[in-house]
């Protein structure tokens, strides 16, 4: 990572923290609470541009983190083991979860059209549970992860090809809480 992007990241993180609804604990609460917005003089135009740029970058960063949390993982046919090639996706989620204690995820397991309707519900459940086990193994509290299964009821690709099947054998990750002000993991 280039130094400039680290700076941007830090700036974004600071901004995000500053915009947070709760004040950071180390900041002493101002007792008489003067009207803060009107007290400082209007910033010079150049600074204002910086603030806007930083806000945009912070928003982009949050969006990127949300995207990473939502990245799907995929499975081999009739298997529920996390593929070695997908471990990085889950490692990244574990790191983001570690940096954002309020985040909760719902993991939903999905299957391709092969196998019976009913068996695929069980298989989808096993796929969801397997991702959850991986994440709790990386230190994520199990209470933050819900597992559900849609079996083959919600294919991403309605086709009947190997390609379609490969896309449909997946875990989806949905943010159910704490996704508003995501911090990047250290």
């Amino acid at each position: 990572m280039r130094p400039s992007s680290i700076l941007t990241l830090l700036a974004a993180a600071t901004l995000v923290a500053a915009c947070g609804k709760k004040p950071a604990p180390e900041q002493p609460a101002p007792q008489p609470a003067p009207p803060p917005r009107e007290a400082p003089p209007p910033p010079p135009p150049a600074k204002n541009d910086d603030a806007e740029r930083m806000a945009r970058e912070a928003a982009a960063r949050v969006a990127a983190l949300r995207t990473e949390l939502g990245d799907m993982i995929h499975f081999d046919f009739d298997k529920a083991d996390v593929r070695a090639s997908d471990q990085g996706i889950l490692d990244r989620k574990a790191a983001i979860l570690g940096a954002n204690a309020a985040v909760r995820l719902r993991i939903s397991g999905h299957c391709d059209e092969r196998g019976s309707d009913e068996y695929n519900l069980a298989l989808g459940n096993r796929r969801g549970a397997s991702a959850k086990r991986y994440l709790t193994g990386k230190g994520v509290d199990e209470g933050r992860l819900d597992v559900v299964s849609y079996g083959k009821e919600r294919p991403l690709d309605p086709g009947h090809s190997e390609d379609a099947w490969a896309k449909n054998r997946r875990d989806e990750f949905e943010l159910t809480a704490g996704g508003d002000n995501l911090l990047a993991p250290k």
Binding site: L121, A122, R126, A129, S149
Partner: peptide, 9 residues
């Protein structure tokens, strides 16, 4: 019936 939870079904 069958019940699916995180330990399997």
């Amino acid at each position: 019936y069958a019940r699916s939870d995180e330990k399997g079904t």
